[in-house]
Each structure stands twice: as structure tokens, then as C-alpha cells.
Simulated assay, not measured.
Amino acid sequence: MATTTTNAPALRRKHLRKRLRTLGFLSPWLVGFTVFFGYPLIATIYFSFMHYNQIKAPTFVGLRNWRYVLEQMPLFGPALWNTLWLVVVMVALRVVFGLGIGLLVTKIKSGVGFFRTAFYLPYLAPPVAATVAFVFLLNPGTGPVNEILGKIGIAAPNWFNDPAWAKPSLVMLSLWGIGDLMVIFMAALLDVPKEQYEAAELDGAGAFTRFRYVTWPSITPIVMFAVVTGVVQTMQYYTQALVAGKLASGVSIGPGSVIQPGYPDHSTLTVPQLVYSLGFQNFNTGAACVLSLVLFAIAMAVTTLLMRRRAGLLSADD
């Protein structure tokens, strides 16, 4: 009993050293989390209840900013609809196209390096440069795409100048830069054990059956990763929609110019664009913070739903 009492302080010191060592290893992440996530989130919640124009000191206004955004702001509905539309359509098509191209490249017998490079190169283009090139290609008056469609007798749409085609055009732009997902899916596909394919072929399984019962169970964690990261990125969709809308409208972008996003007819307006417009063009920081919190809540809800096993992307055994 005396020995146990004597060793107790030593054990406590040992556990304390282990905790301090663990805390030391975690400290870079803890500092980054606090500075770049915790503090901004708390500040955003604080300013959402304040009237603050970034010049005068903030004053408490209660739920006035929330009521303004949720009940009175006319552009909140279109911006939220456009953002959710892009999340559903863009993320789904990017995953399907990325997986399809990954399957195609892994099945090619010769020239794999060329096709892999050709599909990956567009992803390396800067977002602004890629958007400028894409708007030029789809220009309804002088773009080569419409000229080719006209020569073969197809009525060409107005693409970024048509509210009905603006968001599909942005989806086409995102599919053009599908190289990131292609590489991720290629790595997952090449990691599937070949013995399972051979066993399935011996059992007489066709191509679809092999994909359904061999390939898909092996790559479902990667599909989950692609969907979740795609949702988070698309919830922050800003640059491509803003640049495409301004170029299609014909308004020059230069120093001192005030950019009103959403052309044409608010069809490309997203919530991040509205946050920037409110906070840094109209100096309505409180309303901008409310929009940021709404977007954060939606992103968290969608991500939580996808991460749950009942979402269907992961089997119960994973």
C-alpha cells in the first residue's frame, strides 16, 4: 500500500508529461483552428447582430439583420437557389464524369500518358484565365462553338447571355477542368485487387456486374470524399460565375469599377457573391455575416447528411 502511494505522484507526472507532449504536437493545428476558424466564426456571429459599416463602431440591432436577409432581401432567394442548383447538378456531373474518364483512361492499352495529360491539363489553368477562354469560345456572336453549330444546322444558344443557359454553361466549364477528380478516381480504380476481377470473370460476370459488385464497393470511400469536398467547394463558388457574368455582359473590369454580380438576370448570382457585394461594396457587414452563417449552416447540414451511413454512399461494413 505504501509503494502504491509513493508511485502515485510519479505516475501523475508521467501522465502530465504525456498530455503536454500530445498538446505540443497538436498546438500547430489548435492555433490554426483558433485563428482561421474559431475566431472568424465567433466574430461572424457577433457582427450578425450588429449594425457595422466598417467605419463607425458597431451598434447592437438584435435580429434586424436576420429579418432583413430572410424576409426582405429580394436577391437572397435567387442566390440561394442558384447555389443549391450548382451544388446538386455540378457536383453530381463532376463525380460521374470524373469516374467515367478515370475508367476510360485505365482501360486504354496504349497512349495512357498522353490521354491522362490531356484530360488533366485544363485543371491546371487559373480559374480566371479558364473562364475567359470559355466565355470566348461560347460567345454567341463571334465564338467558334456557335459558328460550328451554325454550319451543321444546329440552333446555337446564347450560353452565358441567356438566363436559361448561364448555369449549364458554368457546369460545362467545371467539367472541362475535371482532371483533379480523374486522377483521384484513377488511383482508386488501380487500387482495386485484380484477383477480384479475375474471380468475377470466371463466374461469368459481365462488365456492369463487375463494376457493381467489385469496383463500386472498393471505391465508395473515394466517391464519398469527392462528393463531400465537391459540396464544400461549390458552396463557395464565386470566381468563375462572377468573371463569366461580367465578360458576357460586356462591362469592362478595371480599377475602381463596381461589379454587380449575377448577369444575366441574376442567373449566375451565388450566395458568396452576395456576401461580397453586401460586405465590401455596400458596407453592410451585419447582413453579410448573416448570409455567411446561413451558408455555413446549409453546408454543415448537407455534409452531415452525406457523412451518415444511411446516405447510401458507404456500406455498413466500411
Rank of each mutant, 00 (worst) to 15 (best):
A241I: 12
G62V: 09
A199H: 07
M307A: 12
T83Q: 04
N284Q: 12
L63F: 11
A92H: 01
V302W: 12
G250F: 14
G206D: 04
F119I: 09
Y276Q: 09
F208I: 00
G256E: 05
A316M: 13
T215W: 01
V35Y: 12
V69N: 06
L104A: 14
P40A: 10
S169L: 06
T142K: 10
Q196P: 03
W159F: 05
T59I: 11
V223H: 07
S257P: 00
Q72A: 15
N53V: 04
H51K: 15
D191K: 10
S27W: 08
Q54H: 09
G98W: 02
L26V: 04
I298W: 09
R210N: 03
I222G: 09
D162N: 13
S169T: 12
M172S: 14
P221Q: 02
S277W: 03
L313Y: 12
D162F: 05
F119N: 01
L26R: 03
F49E: 12
F25A: 06
T4C: 10
G77K: 11
G204V: 00
A8D: 07
M186R: 06
G32T: 13
A118D: 05
Q236A: 13
W81H: 12
P261F: 07
N282P: 00
W66F: 14
V223F: 08
F283C: 02
L16R: 13
V91F: 01
S267T: 02
V302E: 11
T229P: 06
N158A: 07
L190H: 04
A226Q: 04
N7R: 14
W66M: 09
T4V: 15
S267M: 00
P140C: 03
R13A: 14
P126Y: 07
P9I: 11
M186V: 10
D180Q: 15
M73V: 00
W165R: 01
I298G: 09
M172F: 15
L99P: 01
F136N: 05
L138N: 04
A155Y: 01
M1P: 10
A155Q: 06
Y197V: 06
P126Q: 08
L291I: 05
F36Y: 09
I259P: 07
T142Q: 11
A10G: 10
V35R: 08
A226N: 03
W216P: 00
P217R: 07
S249I: 02
A57R: 14
L137Q: 14
F160C: 06
T83H: 04
V231S: 05
K194N: 15
K56L: 12
A226I: 04
F160R: 03
K18S: 13
L99V: 08
R94L: 04
A118H: 03
I253P: 00
P255H: 08
V135S: 05
N146W: 03
V271H: 03
T234Y: 00
V87L: 03
W216M: 09
K109Y: 06
T4R: 15
P144M: 10
I42Q: 05
G254I: 06
G141P: 10
R210F: 01
V227Q: 02
T6N: 06
V145C: 00
Q260P: 01
A57E: 14
L84Y: 11
R13N: 11
F76A: 11
V171D: 00
L295D: 08
P272L: 12
L202P: 02
Y120R: 10
P221L: 02
P144E: 13
F160G: 05
P221K: 04
Q54N: 12
Q54G: 15
P122N: 02
W165G: 02
V61W: 04
G179S: 14
K194E: 15
M172E: 03
Y276F: 15
Y120F: 15
F115N: 10
